[in-house]
């Protein structure tokens, strides 16, 4: 096990250093932009998204009735995923005004409908559950 771990660490460090080597000819502006985006990802996740999720879970676990906790937890995983995955298309920041073959769906409508579906499914699961759990 010790030997395997040591070999893996050596391989991992070499692979990672290759990544840095591939950027050896980048100029200062490019490297600065990369560092800013790397740091922004960490700050947005560790500083905003993660604490927010934990705060929501903390409040929900105290406010929601016991019967709704399980459906609500599933709903958070599903709805959170849908929302984060859709962030870029919802932003509509890309594409070009003269190209209507990209970003050509009603993303906000889709997100609102999916949000409503998740909410409705959560409420439905909460109402149905007591009848199902004990015959």
């Amino acid at each position: 096990m010790r030997a395997i771990r040591a070999v893996l660490i050596v391989i991992g460090v070499a692979v990672g250093l290759n990544g840095l080597w591939l950027m050896r000819d980048f100029d200062f502006d490019q490297l600065r932009s990369i560092v800013i985006f790397l740091a922004a990802g960490l700050v947005i996740h560790d500083g905003i998204l993660a604490p927010l999720t934990i705060a929501v879970c903390f409040v929900a676990s105290r406010v929601l009735p016991a019967a709704t906790q399980k459906p609500a937890a599933i709903a958070l995983v599903v709805w959170g995923t849908i929302t984060v995955v859709a962030l870029t298309v919802l932003s509509r920041m890309g594409g070009k005004p003269d190209n209507d073959t990209i970003l050509n769906r009603p993303y906000w409508a889709a997100w609102l409908i999916l949000t409503a579906v998740v909410l409705a499914a959560t409420v439905a699961a909460t109402l149905i559950r007591p009848h199902r759990s004990r015959p």
């Binding site: 991992g12 692979v15 990672g16 290759n18 990544g19 840095l20 591939l22 990369i34």
Partner: peptide, 11 residues
């Protein structure tokens, strides 16, 4: 950066 991800993942 993909190489950095995979290298750090192996470590």
């Amino acid at each position: 950066v993909a190489w950095i991800v995979i290298g750090a993942l192996i470590v």
